[in-house]
């Protein structure tokens, strides 16, 4: 027979569970980022993503990622990883560079499964990790195909 006290306890349990769920949903990239950095500190900055604020179609969104770095033998970008918090597979691509690149910049076109904040993480030669992000609103043509 449910009474007031165990009803409140049940509510507290549900609240706790949903808060945990909300936390997991808030950062679906957490596990991927941990794998990438090996637990090292991820600092915001030095990485910029250039992409339209309003994309014409989620199938093909232009995206340029660049890292503020001199690209020398002593100080260069080892890799740039693109992550999507809303794609069914969050790891979009990883680009491996080196001092011979001369410029830490890669452009491509990506698929985005809806509006989201895209994340780019750069791994530098000193072992540090830096991130940048860009918010993209994905729109769609009103004229869909027959499929």
């Amino acid at each position: 027979m449910p009474n007031r006290r165990n009803f409140l306890a049940w509510c507290a349990g549900v609240w706790g569970m949903s808060a945990g769920l909300a936390r997991a949903q808030a950062d679906p990239l957490a596990a991927l980022v941990r794998d990438l950095t090996g637990g090292a500190r991820l600092s915001a900055g030095r990485v910029s993503i250039d992409t339209p604020r309003l994309a014409d179609n989620g199938h093909s969104v232009p995206l340029k990622v660049s890292v503020d770095n001199p690209m020398t033998a002593a100080n260069h970008v080892r890799s740039i990883t693109l992550l999507s918090p809303r794609n069914p597979r969050p790891l979009i691509a990883k680009f491996v560079l080196g001092p011979h690149a001369g410029r830490a910049e890669v452009s491509t076109r990506v698929r985005l499964n809806g509006s989201q904040i895209v994340l780019a993480i750069a791994e530098l030669s000193d072992g540090s990790f830096w991130s940048g992000s860009a918010e993209v609103e994905v729109t769609e043509s009103a004229c869909l195909d027959a499929g």
Partner: peptide, 22 residues
């Protein structure tokens, strides 16, 4: 090796890439 891309389904069809080298 000067450049390597490891790609998934998040890269658009008919993939295009631009990068730089010395």
């Amino acid at each position: 090796e000067i450049f390597r891309a490891e790609m998934g389904s998040g890269v658009a069809a008919n993939p295009s890439l631009q990068f730089f080298t010395l």
